[in-house]
Design a binder for these strands. Structure first.
Length: 688
DNA sequence: TGTATCACG
DNA sequence: ACGTACGTGATACAT
């Protein structure tokens, strides 16, 4: 058994502390090697022996990832390239030969030196690289300032053309930001792309947008330049334009060299995982769409929000006056410690839940005290109103770009462990909708032109459909195939009544159960959410699994797979590693089991949405439509369009999304349109 | 900087 | 006898 031999060879020389079992998994599941071995307090081990065994096992690329020494102190292993890469400052006079070299290479790595954020940044220089020891820095004289460094942008025209040449591939540490920065300078980056962060994310989704330095350490590149050493941090941060050309060369040229150097190792790892297609055909096309969405932004009615803010200020003040009167004194309602003291000590209310540090005052705890004291409902209202005011009503208008009157979010593609996108600065994926005040905030998202409309397309019940597909459960699949109300179907089964006898309350409870399944439910969690006893909750779960026995079998098989492989996968083969799945700590292990259950469901839904985005964007391009994709909110896409194109957009989005993938159950997309993100009227429902 | 809370899917 | 739902990001407060 070759694996046994590897284990023996390694553990004979390594102090592993009860890790021999995991080590087998690690060797099977290549990415953990560096990380996990490194965390095992290596004393010494026989690198030669391990390397030859890995060769024998047909995993030669792993050899480069074996820890190179027993050293715990130096980040620089002896056989790692430690000399500074040879960096050149280039001038337009050298351009012809440089362009020829890069063209001949077929692809190269690009880094951008710019003052300010990617989208609005002012270009200071470009770094190009083809490997650890070959990089160039092109200083660009700013048109706006009288800075004498570098040549004016016009003189770099051959470079602009090279960047726009589709037959030459372009690689970057963060390609989306590079695209946006270059677009701001009038450059259309073309050519097959590669992104180090995305590649590392597909190799291991725990990586969460690592720094270039971390990437280069993990993927055996040269040490990355220390950004802070050049540009400082915090309020002392300097702009790249304040660097000398030599400093900029060392920083940006060194970064590009680093990114270029690790590409081969990342590609080899993706090839081993069979994930090249995920990068090339899924994530990189999505990256381009996200760049367009970020650059375009979404229009916000800031005046509307400012008007709402003024009324909320009054409302909050009134609530505070009344709460202080009821408390008999003033206090800070935003301070959980003051609040706990007031409610549980002074007013004698019974605390129900605990936090790590004390007695909880969260909405659920307060809700259970609603009838106990008149101050409680006021507090709940104060919480809600201040939350919405500070997070959305007051924050969003400040983020409207003066140039276009629109808000530009960042869509993060390498953050969520499941493969979902996230949105930040501002987060436009958590705009309120559940309360009336929340919906007023949502109504301030409007089309870019007054005569245009918003169109929303959302997958109906996508995660439950994915569950039906992955589990092959007959009953669940049949319910979707027939177009039944699945929560009502669940209620009918769990409560043993006929479908038309299901009460609204029974359906609500069944819906909670269905969501619980997606999260890896427990009777405790279910009882807490439904406000029922754990015995009743257990009974619900028993009846659920008796009905949906395919789901039960599937959930157990996922747990087993996770234990055996150390990872779980989505429908497209995206992985999530779960290092704690075999933990001896029950709590830790069960947390991993819930992640194991949820990830293939949430992650497959994310995969499908990404396919839907690509297909829809492609169809919009091909049709010459004026409509534009604005936002993605996990199962929903939001567009803006001239009204005469609403129908064709709805058709394209419906087809693009519903036919993104073929499951054993139909995919259903609901389309709506309207003057803002709140007031959307149904257009049609697409089934595929 | 960490904790609690709460906005969304 | 335990004692938690999955995935995110922003804000206010306490330290």
């Amino acid at each position: 058994m070759p694996l046994g031999r590897v284990r023996t060879a390694l553990s004979a020389n390594v102090e592993l502390a009860r890790l021999s079992r995991e080590l087998v998994t690690i060797v099977q599941d290549v990415p953990g090697v560096t990380l996990d071995l490194a965390s095992c307090r290596l004393r010494e081990y026989d690198r030669e022996a391990a390397a030859s065994l890995l060769e024998e096992l047909g995993m030669p690329s792993l050899v480069t990832r074996l820890p190179t020494s027993t050293a715990t102190e130096s980040p620089l292993a002896p056989d790692r390239p430690s000399a500074a890469p040879s960096l050149m400052v280039t001038s337009p006079a050298d351009l012809a030969s440089l362009v020829a070299v890069l063209q001949e290479r077929g692809s190269f790595t690009v880094g951008v030196a710019a003052d300010g954020p990617a989208r609005k940044g002012h270009l200071v220089g470009l770094a190009l690289a083809t490997g650890a020891d070959q990089s160039w820095y092109c200083p660009i004289a700013s048109g706006a300032s009288d800075d004498a460094q570098g040549a004016p942008w016009e003189e770099w025209e051959p470079l602009r053309q090279l960047l726009a040449t589709a037959t030459v591939g372009k690689s970057s540490y963060q390609l989306k930001e590079t695209i946006l920065a270059l677009r701001g300078a009038g450059v259309d980056l073309e050519g097959e792309g590669f992104d180090c962060v995305l590649a590392a994310y597909l190799a291991d989704s725990r990586s969460r947008t690592p720094t270039l330095a971390a990437l280069s350490r993990e993927w055996e590149g040269p040490p990355a330049p220390d950004r802070e050493a050049y540009l400082g941090k915090g309020i002392a941060t300097r702009q790249p334009s304040s660097l000398t050309t030599e400093e900029a060369r060392d920083l940006f040229g060194g970064e590009a060299a680093c990114a270029a150097a690790i590409r081969g190792n990342l590609e080899r790892r993706l090839a081993e995982l069979g994930a090249e297609g995920l990068l090339r055909d899924l994530e990189l096309p999505v990256l381009e769409i996200l760049a367009d969405m970020e650059a375009l932004g979404v229009r916000l009615d800031a005046e509307q929000l400012r008007a709402i803010s003024a009324t909320l200020t009054v409302q909050i003040a009134e609530l505070e006056v009344e709460m202080f009167r009821l408390a008999g004194r003033a206090f800070s309602p935003g301070s959980t410690s003051q609040l706990a003291a007031l409610l549980y000590d002074e007013l004698g209310l019974k605390s129900s839940r605990r936090t790590k540090t004390g007695r909880s005052t969260d909405a659920q705890a307060l809700e259970s005290l609603r009838e106990e004291h008149p101050i409680v409902p006021l507090l709940l209202e104060w919480r809600q109103v201040t939350k919405l005011k500070s997070t959305y009503v007051d924050a969003l208008p400040e983020l409207v770009d003066g140039d276009d009157g629109r808000v530009h979010t960042n869509f993060n593609q390498a953050v969520a462990a499941t493969g979902r996108l996230s949105s930040s600065d501002p987060n436009l994926q958590n705009i309120p909708i559940r309360t009336e005040l929340g919906r007023r905030i949502r109504a301030s998202f409007i089309p870019g032109r007054n005569d245009w409309v918003l169109v929303s397309a959302d997958y109906s019940q996508i995660e439950l459909r994915v569950l039906a597909h992955l589990s092959g459960d007959q009953r669940l699949a049949t319910a979707f195939a027939k177009g039944d109300d699945v929560h009502a179907d669940t209620a009918a089964q769990v409560f043993a009544v006929s479908q038309d006898q299901v009460s609204a309350e029974q359906r609500r409870m069944a819906k909670v159960v269905n969501f619980g399944i997606l999260y890896g439910l427990s009777s405790y969690g279910l009882s807490r959410d439904l406000g029922i006893g754990t015995d009743v909750a257990e009974d619900f779960i028993r009846r659920y699994f008796a009905t949906y026995d395919g789901v039960q079998g599937y959930l157990e098989s996922v747990r087993e797979e996770a234990r055996r492989q150390g990872y779980v996968s989505t429908i497209l083969g995206r992985r999530r590693y779960l290092t704690d799945i075999n933990s001896s700590n029950r709590q830790v292990r069960e947390a991993s089991e819930r992640m194991a259950i949820n990830m293939p469901i949430q992650g497959s839904a994310a995969d499908i949405m990404k396919l839907g985005m690509i297909r829809t964007a492609q169809a919009l391009r091909a049709s010459g439509s004026a409509a534009r994709m604005l936002l993605q909110v996990h199962d929903e896409l939001v567009f803006e369009t001239p009204p005469e194109e609403v129908e064709s957009l709805a058709e394209l989005a419906a087809e693009g999304m519903a036919a993104a993938i073929e499951l054993v159950v139909p995919l259903v997309v609901d389309l709506k349109s309207g003057p803002n993100w709140r007031d959307l009227s149904p257009l049609r429902r697409a089934v595929a």
